[in-house]
Design a binder for these strands. Structure first.
Lengths: 141, 141
DNA sequence: CTGAATCCAAGGGGATACTG
DNA sequence: CAGTATCCCCTTGGATTCAG
């Protein structure tokens, strides 16, 4: 689907009627982008991709996440079938989280985006510096 | 970078220390995810991927976008070096937007994510239905 | 035509305290 | 240990108006 030409080609015919319209399909495609944009979703998926974890293990593995957001993120991912939550009826409580196969395929796809980011950080940074420089000249302090 | 195994593998060693830590690199990788999560960014990139456009052409091509957000999105993309803005000094004003080569490579990467979304919409939807069903049973109205 | 400025509502997300 | 419940701030983003 969606045949792509080589890197750097700025001319395409194919893409995103997917995004332009807003039929049902389109709408839910957007939801995937929203999820990726959530502050902790990709981090959690990536962390679970390394290995299954318990709640607090996960919490320690992700510096900066609050209990509230970790729980909310996990619930969302579970609802979408990306993460499986397993409660062990023991005391003290033990809850394991792991990536589902579906979550695994998403991780594979998203990590291409992460690779892109790492690879092009300098380009983006340079562009920003240049842009900000131009703005300063245009609107002197 | 980041060797990946086949689809559906839920066990990885590699991934994103990139996201776990928060050194400079990490931080800016997150910014890429944020950008993808912005409501109109990917849509605009995709639309410009089809062909360069003028401001209002773009606006008409993207139903639902407000002037405010279209401008803001374009500014952000321009600042990151993903989009080039060309002002023609004529009256009435004419401003052309086009994807840069860098923007092109991002589009190629993101579209893999769009493909994933289209391909797995039904899985996600099914998971949601099942999850919501379980919740209803657990917390009856 | 291409924006900038202002106003405002909704939701994301952090800090903290409490619970089974 | 694994969460829930509150409070509250700040950002995102839509509507509208003004301007070059």
């Amino acid at each position: 689907m969606a045949a792509r030409s080589s890197d750097g080609d700025t001319r395409r015919e194919w893409v995103p009627a997917v995004l332009a319209a807003r039929d049902d399909t389109t709408c839910r495609v957007r939801e995937v982008l929203d999820r990726v944009g959530e502050k902790w979703a990709v981090t959690v998926i990536a962390e679970l991709g390394r290995k299954p974890r318990r709640y607090n293990e996960l919490r320690r593995a992700i510096p900066g996440v609050s209990q509230r957001m970790l729980t909310a993120t996990l619930r969302g991912l579970e609802r979408d079938g990306l993460v499986r939550r397993t409660v062990h009826p023991v005391v003290p409580p033990r809850v394991d989280y792991e990536l589902t196969p579906l979550g695994g395929t998403l991780l594979n796809t998203v990590s291409a985006l992460l690779d892109w980011a790492v690879e092009h950080i300098d380009d983006v940074d340079g562009a920003r510096a240049e842009y900000d420089g131009r703005q300063e000249v245009a609107a002197p302090g």
